[in-house]
């Protein structure tokens, strides 16, 4: 009887260990996917920041060019005789 009870305990321990390993595998999968998600978010942040920076630079250049054009148009409209044929 005692021997049979020892085998049963061993089987139960083995089942518990296997379940524990399955749980650990599940947690590792979840953590791996979360890390992948985190890496994707970091990469997305970098690309989005780069795009936003280039867009900001383009907008700055465009703003300066528009200011220059505004001044030129203002000068031209202030002296309409220059364009009179």
């Amino acid at each position: 009887m005692a021997r049979a009870g020892g085998i049963t305990n061993a089987v139960n321990v083995g089942i518990a260990v296997q379940a524990d390993w399955e749980n650990r595998e599940f947690i590792s999968h979840i953590s791996l996917n979360v890390r992948r998600l985190f890496d994707f978010l970091v990469q997305f942040e970098a690309t989005t920041k780069s795009k936003l920076a280039s867009l900001n630079e383009k907008l700055d250049v465009l703003e300066r060019r528009l200011e220059l054009l505004e001044v030129q148009v203002g000068n031209a409209s202030a002296n309409p005789s220059l364009f009179a044929t």
Binding site: K51, S54, L55, K58, L59, V61, L62, R65, L66, L69
Partner: peptide, 11 residues
Amino acid sequence: VVEVSGAELRV
């Protein structure tokens, strides 16, 4: 970006 490119072209 496309809008800014169009604005650059217009400018």
